[in-house]
Amino acid sequence: MSPVFAMLAAMTLASAIAAMSFRKLVHSALSMILTFSGLASIYLHLNAQFVGLVQVLVYVGAVAILVVFAILLTRDSTRDSSVRSLAQSWLTGLLVAGAVFGTLATAIIGSRALDRALPQAAEITVKKIGEQLMTRYIIPLEVIALLLTAAMIGAVIIAMREKERK
């Protein structure tokens, strides 16, 4: 295990656990930002520069800001913070998550197909990614463009204040 990966993994995991367990929503959102940045650094460590930068741009720049805005717009001022923040079935949820991890971990550790050495790093330029996007992946790209437009219009319509009906 390389020390760089160990450090990044520890930071990412700690901030992910923190994000899921803080009482204050804003603290959770800020820890989530740290998790996303840690994941972006792991992508950079894995030689996927473009994906790492896109991860920062989209998650830190857009998704995190959206989450923060949503938190500020839905603040419960009537409710005091001493109310339980866990769902009624929290123990079941935790057990399910633990069981999922157990299953995944046994499968991963037991797998023979994963025993392979790290291959030579390929030179991945942004230009290559762009060429692939414009040739082989052109239809997914167009579909994504349509999806994003639809999502944007949908989000605006859902969040728009309904007009007072007489």
Partner: peptide, 8 residues
């Protein structure tokens, strides 16, 4: 990408 982090 890093410029977006300033908003945070």
């Amino acid at each position: 990408a890093v410029g977006a982090a300033a908003e945070v």
